[in-house]
Every structure is written in structure tokens, then in C-alpha cells.
Nucleic acid binder design. Structure first.
Length: 458
RNA sequence: GACCCGUUCGUCUAGCGGUCUAGGACUCCGCCCUUUCACGGCGGCAACACGGGUUCGAGUCCCGUACGGGUCGCCA
């Protein structure tokens, strides 16, 4: 795409509902990326004109989610700018002024205390960057309304109510006024607004204001094709925080749904997305949200983290699970098993068997050993070889395990399995030798000595 | 119901008239690596919604049908 001629200004305009939906987050991401890509401004505007639906906590969750994603705004709550305030509930004098202009030009009239905008009787065309040229006649369309309950159309007034009798303003009007007042150059929003856009264009025209560029992005759907709601898996940003996703991974996956870099690359950091993102890469059709793939993307991001960053990212999840993140063994354990996790939330359960003071035996693991008759011999061989080690390190331990197997004329697997079960209680896990190294000689030997079937599965 | 938008493997997508016996990724399956389980590597299954045009030639352009989504509020 050709770089925009004027300085880019985009905005994300949520209403404070108490959660940031992935659909909204993706819209915010695209606006943010586009502004960053072209060195413009990203504005956060709070659409709180409907008093019944607003709460301060509701906004706080949204702001926290945006900050977690790394989508910092240049103007908005907490960041005053040339167009403060950024709460629509505090901008009434501005709306009054614009309403005055419409009154002066005869575009509005009073109806039962409300103010209606006279809708023009002509085709209004919108050139959308994603959807192409669309058009509609508002007067024709608006004169009939579908009554969903009665399942029939009813006659209605096509003119848009823009102000309620109580003096508060309606979305379509404040949205247009704010966009032009704040100098928004590109309106990137969900396709659910596509059909509303001719109304907005009519308002811009009546105000004799230039149009922003429109780009309507397709919607996210559930796997079954239904509309995503807050109850669906993966729908809410704060759930990603809890589950142990990293922000870049969530941004990465959201971007890949509805936008394509046009090559085979799939994994991008936020910074890399900024370099690549553009509006012409946005797709035209809705996409279904695939939580499994989102998890995979997160795993890829986790694997790319350097050890220090990985440890820092993991710390809160360890703490929450009651594992002291400053345990001196933690770095070594993380290095050993980090590639096994796709989310940070999986980490504590992976660490636990290695760091725990007591062995928690998996019944299935014990059952696997039940028919073995050589357990005592294996145990004695292991103890003998491990006891004799001059140095306790993974390399030496591995050597000892081989020797033990050789002494019994057994395959490695035949002695590894009982050893692993005796020490960790489980049949699977990371490399055994380094695991034993971390657990420590005394503990390993003690657990071997105490291990004999049947064991009561604790 | 009217209007608007869309339709390539199960899913996300590449493809912008010939290079498509349609490429990549997730998932699933198989093999390899290996002390187990993962990771990783290799391989496999799997798609142009349907019908008409236009054209020497259509996944790519046009029309229709079907299906999906959106909008039609004194919600945003």
C-alpha cells in the first residue's frame, strides 16, 4: 500500500463493559499497528455515553488488558492530549456545538423531545479499503424496520435519533463528531459497523467535513460458526493472562486471523508485526477462532524466549502455585523442561515432581511395574553405582545408569523406568540424568532405598 | 423480511487469467531421533460451495443459486 499522505491518526473506542473481547482487542491491535507502522498516533477514546452500561472497574479491566498486550495509546485515559477529555461522557459541550451547526443548516428537528437527523434521500457510497465500494439509501432502508419478535417489517421513521430527550447523545453522532474533532484519518473497525457507515458518511457530509478512510475488518466466529461471545473459550483477554500466554503470542495469533503477511511466516513479535502490517493484508471473510492454534503460537513464542526472560515470565505462575521462584534449583529445572510447555500455566505441574519434598506416585506408573520381578536387583544395582560416583553431575549419573544396566545385562529402558518411578513417581518426564542431578544425591539414594512394591499411591 | 458483505483442505491462510497434478501452518495419522513423555526432523490424509457465462485458457473476471455473517434502536 502507498504510505498515507497525512500523519496517520487511528483510534480504538471501547465502551467500558468490564472485559476486553478478542474481537475488540484485534481491532485495537490493527489500529495500533497501523499507527505505529506509519509513525502516527493511536488514540484511546472511551465511549461511555450510555450511563446504564458504564463502570469504572469496567474500564480498568480494558485498560489493563490493552497495557498487557503492549498496545499503549498516545492520547486517552491517563494521557492528556490536544483533544482531551477522551471520555465521551465529558465532551457534551463539544457535541452541543456540533449539534448547533446541524440545527443552523436545518439538518435536524425535534421529535418527542429527541433530536433527529434528517437522512438524505440518495445513494450514499463508501469506499472501504477492505470491502471495496458499498452503497445504500438510508431513507429507503430506514423507513422499514424488522421486528424480530413479530417476524415482520414495520413502518418507522428513517431519520436518525442523535440526541435523547434527556440530552445525552447517541453513538452514531458522537462517533462521527469525535472522529472528525480528533482528526482521525483511518477508521479501522469491525465489519459489524459496515452497514452503519453510510449513516456516518451522511453525518460527515452534513457537517461539511472530510471523510476518514474506512477499513472494516471481518469478524471472529466460534469454531461452529456462531458469533463469539464472552463465554467462549479464548474470548477474553484477561483469560490469556491467567492461562500463561505471553502478550506477543496473543497479538501474533489475533493478527493472523484476518490479516496475512502474504508469505509462509507465522511467528512474529509485536515489533516485527509493526514492520509488516498494512491494511491491504486484511482479509475479507470472517474467521473461526482456533484456540488450539493460538496455544501452538504461544508455545513457539515461549521457545524463543531467552532463559532470563523465560524465568521472569514464569515467576508469577510459580508463585501462584506455591513454588518459590527464587528456589536455587528453578533455573536448572526450567532449562530442563521449558520446551515441554505451551503455556506458562503448565509450568508448575511440570516442575512439581522434581522440586517436591516427597514423591507422589502415579497409580498408573506403579501398575506398570507391578509385574516386574527384577525390581530389587535393579534398585540395588542403581544404588551401588550411584553411591560410588565421585562426582554428582548429569554426565556421571548417565554413565552410572549405563553401568547399572550393563551389570544386570539389561536394556537401558528396563532400569530407567523403575528408577524414574522411584524418584519422581511418574513414567515420563525430562531427561533422567539431569533430573537426578537436580534432585540431589542424598534424596535420590534415599528414595531408591525406600522404594519397594507394593507402594501405596499417595 | 429488506439491505450490505463474504465463500480455497476440519481450521487459519497463499493464490491477484496460463508457472495450480493448488503452496504453507494448526489438528490428526505414520516413521525417525530417544531412557520415557515431550521437543525436533521426515512423510501422509485433506480444499478451489454449485450452475451458467467471458476467454485459446478461470481457484483467479461476470451473472445467478445455495450457504454463512452483518445491519436495520432514544446499545455501542
Amino acid at each position: 500500500m502507498n504510505p498515507p499522505a497525512a500523519r496517520v491518526r487511528t483510534r480504538f473506542a471501547p465502551s467500558p463493559t468490564g472485559f476486553l473481547h478478542t474481537g475488540g482487542a484485534r481491532t485495537a491491535l490493527f489500529n495500533w499497528l497501523f499507527a505505529r507502522r506509519y509513525g502516527g498516533d493511536f488514540i484511546l477514546r472511551v465511549e461511555d455515553t450510555d450511563a446504564a452500561r458504564n463502570s469504572e472497574e469496567g474500564l480498568a479491566v480494558i485498560l489493563d488488558s490493552l497495557r498487557w498486550l503492549g498496545l499503549e495509546w498516545d492520547e486517552g485515559p491517563g494521557r492528556d492530549g490536544p483533544h482531551s477529555p477522551y471520555y465521551q461522557s465529558q465532551r457534551r459541550d463539544i457535541y452541543d456545538r456540533y449539534l448547533g451547526r446541524l440545527q443552523a443548516s436545518g439538518h435536524v428537528y425535534e421529535d418527542d423531545g429527541a433530536i433527529r437527523f434528517r437522512v438524505p434521500d440518495r445513494e450514499i457510497a463508501v469506499d472501504d479499503l477492505v470491502c471495496g465500494r458499498i452503497s445504500a439509501n438510508l431513507r429507503e432502508q430506514g423507513s422499514r424496520r424488522w421486528d424480530a419478535e413479530a417476524r415482520r417489517e414495520i413502518e418507522t421513521n428513517p431519520d436518525l435519533v442523535i440526541r435523547r430527550p434527556d440530552g445525552s447523545y447517541i453513538f452514531h453522532f458522537v462517533n462521527v463528531v469525535d472522529d472528525l474533532e480528533m482528526g482521525v484519518t483511518h477508521v479501522i473497525r469491525g465489519e459489524d459497523h459496515l452497514s452503519n457507515t453510510p449513516k456516518h458518511v451522511a453525518l460527515f457530509d452534513a457537517l461539511k467535513a472530510p471523510l476518514p478512510v474506512y477499513a472494516h475488518v471481518p469478524l471472529y466466529l466460534n469454531a461452529d460458526g456462531s458469533k463469539m461471545s464472552k463465554r467462549d473459550q479464548g474470548a477474553l483477554i484477561h483469560e490469556y493472562i491467567e492461562a500463561g500466554f505471553v502478550p506477543d503470542a496473543v497479538n501474533n495469533y489475533m493478527a493472523l486471523l484476518g490479516w496475512s503477511p502474504k508469505d509462509d511466516r507465522e511467528i512474529f513479535t509485536l515489533a516485527e508485526l509493526v514492520e509488516r502490517f498494512d491494511l491491504d493484508g486484511i482479509n475479507r471473510s470472517n474467521s473461526k477462532f482456533d484456540y488450539e492454534k493460538c496455544v501452538w503460537v504461544n508455545g513457539e513464542h515461549l521457545r524463543r524466549l531467552d532463559p532470563a526472560a523465560y524465568q521472569a515470565a514464569t515467576a508469577p505462575y510459580l508463585k501462584q502455585a506455591g513454588i518459590p521462584a527464587d528456589d536455587p534449583r528453578v533455573p536448572a529445572v526450567l532449562a530442563l523442561l521449558r520446551d515441554r510447555a505451551q503455556t506458562l500455566g503448565q509450568i508448575p505441574a511440570l516442575l512439581a515432581p522434581i522440586l517436591a519434598d516427597t514423591v507422589k506416585f502415579d497409580p498408573a506408573a506403579l501398575a506398570k511395574l507391578a509385574s516386574r520381578t527384577d525390581l530389587d536387583a535393579v534398585r540395588d544395582a542403581l544404588i551401588g553405582k550411584l553411591e560410588a560416583l565421585p562426582e554428582w553431575n548429569a554426565e556421571a549419573i548417565k554413565e552410572a545408569l549405563h553401568e547399572a544396566a550393563g551389570a544386570l545385562d539389561a536394556k537401558m529402558g528396563a532400569i530407567m523406568l523403575p528408577c524414574r518411578v522411584a524418584i519422581t513417581g511418574d513414567t515420563s518426564g525430562p531427561d533422567l540424568a539431569p533430573t537426578l542431578e537436580i534432585i540431589g544425591r542424598e534424596t535420590v539414594l534415599q528414595r531408591l532405598r525406600e522404594f519397594s512394591l507394593p507402594v501405596s499411591a499417595a
